[in-house]
Design a protein around this nucleic acid. Structure first.
Length: 716
DNA sequence: GTAGGGTTAG
C-alpha cells in the first residue's frame, strides 16, 4: 500500500534514452490514416492469433511504421493485451516512447487500460504517475481506467488522490469519469461518497444507474437496489439491458423473492436477453436462491451454451436446497461435457458430500482435487475440513488445519474447526480453539459465536455458554437471531425454561421461528406442554407450513396421551397438504451407503434386520434398558408401541451394522431427522453389550457411543 | 484510433 501511495508523489522522471527532439506533440495529435496504415489496420482487425500478430508487428518494425504511426502501435498494444501478453505490449510501448520526448495520451491510455483490465493496479498507477511527470495530457479516457484499477484493488486512498486530480483538471462532470467514481467508491465500501456523486450528477445514463444498483446489491442491500431500479424505470424511463438484468436478478435472488423472480425472468425472456450466457446464468442462479431448483434446471437445460459458472451455479443450487444427490448426478454429466470442473466445482462437490455425510465419496473428491493438480486455496481447504468433520473424521480435519500455514488461515478455517469440535461433543476443545484463535489475532465473527454457543449446548456446558453470551453482549457483538436460538436451545435442553423464556422476552426484535423452534424442541424433550403450546402458537403464525413444528407439537401431545389434540394437528396438516417427512437413516457399509426406513419392503436385508432388532431388544432389556414409550407416536397398545420403537430407521441401521460390519470396525449411521430419545438410550446399551463403537450423525450433531455412554450431554 | 455498470463457492 505504501509503495503504491508513493507513486503518486510527483518526482521528476525523465526518459534517459529519449532523443532531444520532438516528432509529434502528444496532446495536439489528430489522426488521419494514409493508405498503408489503412492496409495494416485491416490486417490487424482480422488477426486472431498471437503468431500472426507477431508477424504484423515485425513487418511494422521493418517499415518503421511502428514508431511513426501511433495508431498502429496502439492497435498492436491493444491486441497483445487481448492475448494476455502484457509484457510484449509494455515492451512495444517503451520502444515507441524512446523515439519521442513525450509519450502520447492515446498510447498511455491504451497501456493503462491493458493493466487496469487485469487489475494490475501497481502498474496502472505507475503509468498514471509517469503521464503526470512527463507532462502527458491526462484526459477523460485516462481516469475511468485508473478508477477501475483502484476499485479492483480497493485502493481508496490512491483513488481519492486521482479523484482530486480529475476535479482540478476539469473532468469532474464528465459522465464516464463520474460513473467510474461511483463504481470505485461503491467497491471500496464508501457508500456516502458514492451516493453523493450519483445524486449530484446532472445527467445519468443506464450505466450510472446500474453501477449504483449494483453497489447496493453487492453490499447486500437488495431492497434498496430494487427501489433504485424501479426509480430508474419510472422516473427516467430507462430500459434494463443485460448487465442491469444480471444485477437485478442477483438482488432478487438475495431476497428469495419468488414473485419478482418471475417478473425478471419474463422480462429477460421477452427481450431475448436470456439467450446471453451471463443473463441465463444470473436467472438460473436467481431461481436457485429462491429455492426453485426446478425452474433453475429448466433454464439450465434450455441454455444454448454453458460455462463453468452455469454448471457450478446449478450444482450449488442443488446442494444449497438439500438436493445434494442431484448435484452428484449432475457432476457426472459435467464431466462428460465440454466444461471441466474448476476449484469452485470442487468446493461445491465437497460441500455436497459434507451435507450427505458420504465419507468415502468425499475422500474421492479430495483425491480428485489432488490428482488434477487443482489449486487448493484456503476456502477449498476449509470446505475439505468441514467435509471431514461432518463425515465423522475429525482427526483428518485437524490434520488439514495444521497443514494450512498459520498466515493463510482465515476466520473460516477456525470456524470450521471450532464447529467440528462442537458437533462432535468436544465443547472444551472448541472453547480452547476459540481462545487460540483470538491469541493469534484472528477476529471472531458471527459464525464463530454461533459455533461456540452450539458447542456449549451440545456438550451441556451451560455456564461456559452463559459466559460466552454475556461476553458477546459486553463486546457489543451484533446479536443475531441464530445466537439467541443457540442459547435458547442450550438452556431449553437443560430444562432451564424460566431463563430461556426470560431471554426470549428480552429480545430486542421479535423472535424468529428458529428461536421458538429451539424452545419447542426443549419442551418436547422435557414434556413441557404449557410452554410448548406458547411456542407452537407463535411458530404456526410465523411458519404456518413448516411440517417439523407440527410434528414436534404433536409429539408433545402424544407423550401426554392427548390423542385428541394429536389428531387435530394431523387434520390441520392434512388440510394444508403437509406431509410428515419420512425418517431415513443411512449406514456406511464398506464403500457403499445403505438406506433404511420403517416399513421398507424393498430392502433385501429387511427380514434378518428386523429379527436382529427383536433379539437386540431382549438383550438390552436384560441389561436394564427400559423402552421410552413416549417416543412412540401412535395411539396404540403399549406392546405395539414397543414394537414400533424397534422399527425406527436408526435402530434398523444399527442392527444391520451389528449383523454385517466386522467387530473391529466403527458403525457409522446418519439420520435425516433428530435421533429420538429412545434410540439414543438404546445405542448406549448396544455399544456396551457388543463392545462396539457407534457414531450417529443427526442434524449436524454427532453422538459417539462407546462402552455404554455417549459423548454428548444434550440428551437427558 | 482509447471509456464507465455484471454472473458461480464460503
Amino acid at each position: 500500500m505504501h509503495r503504491l501511495g508513493s507513486l503518486l508523489s510527483h518526482k521528476p522522471l525523465l526518459n534517459p534514452r529519449a532523443p532531444p527532439y520532438s516528432l509529434i506533440s502528444s496532446s495536439t495529435f489528430s489522426y488521419s490514416p494514409n493508405s498503408i496504415e489503412i492496409f495494416y489496420d485491416h490486417l490487424l482487425k482480422s488477426c486472431n492469433g498471437s503468431s500472426s500478430l507477431k508477424q504484423i508487428h515485425s513487418a511494422l518494425t521493418t517499415t518503421g511504421l511502428i514508431t511513426t504511426s501511433p495508431h498502429l502501435g496502439g492497435q498492436i498494444i491493444i491486441k497483445y493485451a487481448k492475448f494476455d501478453d502484457l509484457n510484449r505490449a509494455r515492451l512495444l510501448f517503451d520502444n515507441i516512447n524512446v523515439c519521442y520526448d513525450k509519450p502520447t495520451s492515446f498510447l498511455c491510455n491504451t497501456m493503462i487500460r491493458a493493466y487496469a483490465n487485469v487489475g494490475q493496479c501497481f502498474e496502472t498507477l505507475k503509468l498514471y504517475s509517469f503521464m503526470r511527470k512527463t507532462g502527458t495530457f491526462v484526459n477523460n479516457y485516462t481516469y475511468p481506467f485508473v478508477f477501475k484499477a483502484c476499485a479492483l484493488n480497493l485502493l481508496v486512498r490512491e483513488g481519492k488522490v486521482v479523484h482530486g486530480d480529475a476535479l482540478k483538471n476539469g473532468f469532474g462532470s464528465d459522465l464516464y469519469v463520474e460513473a467510474g467514481l461511483v463504481d470505485m467508491y461503491a467497491k471500496c465500501g464508501l457508500f456516502v461518497d458514492c451516493r453523493k456523486i450519483f445524486d449530484e450528477m446532472s445527467t445519468k445514463d443506464l450505466v450510472c444507474w446500474t453501477a449504483m444498483i449494483t453497489a447496493y446489491e453487492q453490499a447486500e442491500k437488495p431492497e434498496e437496489a430494487l427501489i433504485l431500479f424501479k426509480k430508474m424505470q419510472q422516473e427516467e424511463g430507462l430500459l434494463a439491458d443485460s448487465i442491469a438484468v444480471v444485477s437485478v436478478a442477483s438482488a432478487v435472488g438475495q431476497l428469495g423473492d419468488v414473485r419478482n423472480a418471475h417478473t425478471v425472468h419474463g422480462y429477460a425472456f421477452r427481450k431475448s436477453l436470456i439467450e446471453e450466457l451471463c443473463v441465463g446464468n444470473s436467472i438460473l442462479t436467481m431461481h436457485n436462491k429462491c429455492g426453485n431448483t426446478e425452474k433453475a434446471r429448466l433454464v439450465f437445460d434450455m441454455m444454448m451454451e454453458r460455462d463453468a459458472i452455469s454448471w457450478n451455479s446449478m450444482l450449488s443450487g442443488y446442494t444449497q436446497n438439500g438436493q445434494a444427490t442431484e448435484a452428484l448426478l449432475l457432476f457426472d454429466e459435467m464431466r462428460d461435457s465440454d466444461c471441466q470442473p474448476t476449484p469452485v466445482t470442487a468446493l461445491i462437490m465437497v460441500s455436497a458430500c459434507a451435507y450427505l455425510g458420504f465419507r468415502h465419496l468425499g475422500r474421492k473428491f479430495h483425491d480428485f482435487i489432488v490428482d488434477s493438480r487443482m489449486e487448493i486455496d484456503t476456502n477449498l481447504s476449509n470446505a475439505l475440513m468441514d467435509m471431514y468433520a461432518k463425515c465423522g473424521d475429525l482427526e483428518k480435519a485437524v490434520d488439514l488445519f495444521n497443514g494450512i500455514p498459520p498466515t493463510e488461515r482465515n476466520a473460516g478455517s477456525w470456524n470450521v474447526l471450532i464447529s467440528g469440535y462442537g458437533m462432535h461433543g468436544h465443547g472444551k476443545e472448541a472453547l480452547e480453539l476459540f481462545s487460540r484463535m483470538q491469541e493469534e489475532g484472528v477476529e471472531p465473527n458471527h459464525f464463530t459465536f454461533t459455533s461456540i454457543l452450539s458447542a456449549c449446548s451440545h456438550a451441556g456446558l451451560i455456564d461456559e455458554g452463559r459466559k460466552c453470551f454475556a461476553e458477546m453482549r459486553r463486546l457489543s457483538v451484533t446479536l443475531e437471531d441464530k445466537h439467541h436460538a443457540c442459547v435458547i436451545d442450550m438452556l431449553g435442553r437443560a430444562g432451564l425454561f424460566q431463563e430461556a423464556f426470560d431471554l426470549i422476552k428480552e429480545m430486542p426484535s421479535p423472535p424468529s421461528d428458529g428461536v421458538w423452534g429451539a424452545l419447542l424442541l426443549a419442551c418436547k424433550i422435557h414434556g413441557n406442554m404449557e410452554l410448548g403450546k406458547t411456542a407452537a402458537s407463535n411458530l404456526l403464525q410465523l411458519e404456518p407450513n413448516h411440517t417439523g413444528y407440527y410434528v414436534l407439537m404433536s409429539n408433545i401431545y402424544a407423550a401426554s396421551n392427548k390423542w385428541k389434540e394429536v389428531w387435530k394437528l394431523r387434520e390441520d396438516m392434512k388440510n394444508k397438504g403437509l406431509k410428515k417427512p419420512a425418517a431415513f437413516s443411512m449406514i456406511e457399509y464398506g464403500e457403499d451407503i445403505l438406506g433404511f426406513h420403517t416399513a421398507d419392503q424393498e430392502n433385501p436385508y429387511r427380514h434378518e434386520v428386523y429379527k436382529k432388532m427383536e433379539s437386540l431388544a431382549i438383550e438390552m432389556k436384560m441389561a436394564g434398558y427400559v423402552p421410552d414409550l413416549s417416543c412412540a407416536l401412535h395411539d396404540v397398545e403399549e406392546e405395539d408401541k414397543e414394537r414400533m420403537l424397534n422399527y425406527h430407521s436408526e435402530k434398523l441401521a444399527v442392527a444391520f451394522g451389528i449383523l454385517k460390519i466386522d467387530p473391529g470396525m466403527v458403525i457409522r449411521v446418519t439420520k435425516n431427522l433428530r435421533v429420538c430419545n429412545d434410540c439414543h438410550s438404546a445405542f448406549k446399551y448396544i455399544s456396551h453389550i457388543y463392545q462396539r463403537k457407534i457414531i450417529v450423525r443427526d442434524a449436524n450433531r454427532f453422538h459417539h457411543f462407546q462402552g455404554g455412554t455417549c459423548s454428548c450431554k444434550d440428551y437427558w
